[in-house]
Design a binder for these strands. Structure first.
Lengths: 225, 225
DNA sequence: ATTATCTATAGATCTATAGATAATGC
DNA sequence: ATTATCTATAGATCTATAGATAATGC
């Protein structure tokens, strides 16, 4: 203790230091919020995880809610942007005859890949989104950040299913997003239920199945009598 | 204020009084937990909603978590039992050739009917379950209360899809339950997204579509190359 | 000179317990 | 006599602010 020289990492500009600390705070908050939700986390919890004083969080953020919103916003543009690009690419490729499955592959696989390849931080963000998606606070943030990409998906689905009422398309999306959020949450329930056959973390197993599964669902709606 | 005679409802036996107070506490807690989650609700919030003193909650429950678990448990046997009966009835009817859609109708429609017909209290319980389903605490309670009925569903699905690997069946269930939880949560997101075409509260709209949608998904998994 | 971080602390709130009071039960 | 409810309160914790200190920036 007494003679620990304290690594004392060399810090460069203030801008860099600010960015580094902010990132650490957001990482810690992201993880904790993903596990315990907005109200299950105290600013002290976050500060302790980072190793700074609680009051520093107030220096960077007005209050707990603004920290929460910053966590949501930090990665939202990336996931939204990537999916938007993938959908536009698919739309261009498919021309006048997009398929439901094609659109869903672009939407779902792009996102699952991002979380899977992004490592722990992105997996935490995924769990964070899932955790808050069925809360009033979270749903409102989903509106703000994800409406454009979802409406883009819906527009392609409508082109793929010209005879299906818009209402059905939206309910189909409602099913899709529920399943996706359940995946991102990684509660471990499917692991236990399946006796170890499935693993919550296995986003590639989901990717292999989800778009086809959901596409068939949309087509079945279309065939309704 | 001064001359309010205070209706002072006539109370009968202590057992009745106990039951009545317990029910009021559980109703209040159920609603508040469904809106704000375990950590978003204080015992004071619950007590105020009931109109009793906070300490009375400690008379009936050891602590906040045991109140939470009591809320979960109170209606769990009913929803689980009804679905179990419906699945067994369907199994008997269908004999050696059950269908995926038949099993899903028994499982899903039975539950959606319960919430829809049960009024506000049951709708709150549904939202409560959805809200906690993707949290560690909630998922563990799901295991305890709902595993038997889910495994019964899975066993019928396996009979209906003898060539489909069990892993696929479990992933299919994972999709189903995600969609169901997203429905029960009633966040209002689908209302806003669809510009008012769909309504979160409209469980009958979901009932009309969900079993067929999901059944088609399961069949598509089966056809995988 | 400005920005990042920490110390000290106020004020509010929360959980939980001990013990008193009010109502029912034989 | 027992059970239901309330009063009073301890102890912990939480958010937020004011102001001091330490580090970078011209």
């Amino acid at each position: 203790m007494a003679e620990s020289p304290k690594p004392k990492r060399v810090r460069r500009t203030k801008a860099e230091q600010r960015a580094e600390t902010l990132e650490q705070i957001l990482d810690a908050a992201e993880y904790l919020f993903s596990q315990h939700g907005l109200h299950g986390v105290t600013l002290r919890d976050v500060a302790q995880r980072v190793g700074v004083h609680t009051t520093l969080l107030h220096y960077y953020f007005d209050d707990k809610r603004s920290l929460f919103e910053a966590v949501f916003a930090r990665r939202a543009a990336t996931t939204s942007g990537r999916r938007m690009e993938a959908l536009e690419r698919y739309e261009a490729e498919a021309g006048d005859h997009p398929t439901v499955e094609g659109a869903l592959h672009a939407f779902l696989d792009t996102d699952l890949d991002l979380y899977f390849q992004g490592g722990e931080a992105w997996m935490n963000y995924a769990a964070f989104c899932a955790r808050v998606s069925n809360t009033p606070e979270g749903a409102a943030l989903m509106d703000v950040h994800f409406d454009p990409v979802v409406l883009k998906l819906v527009s392609i689905l409508k082109k793929a299913l010209p005879k299906t009422p818009a209402e059905d398309i939206f309910w189909g999306y409602h099913f899709v997003t529920g399943s996706l959020m359940n995946t991102l949450a990684r509660t471990g329930r499917i692991d236990r239920l399946s006796g170890g056959l499935c693993h919550s973390d296995d986003f590639m197993a989901v990717k292999k199945r989800m778009a086809r599964f959901m596409a068939a669902g949309f087509l079945a709606l279309d065939l309704r009598g």
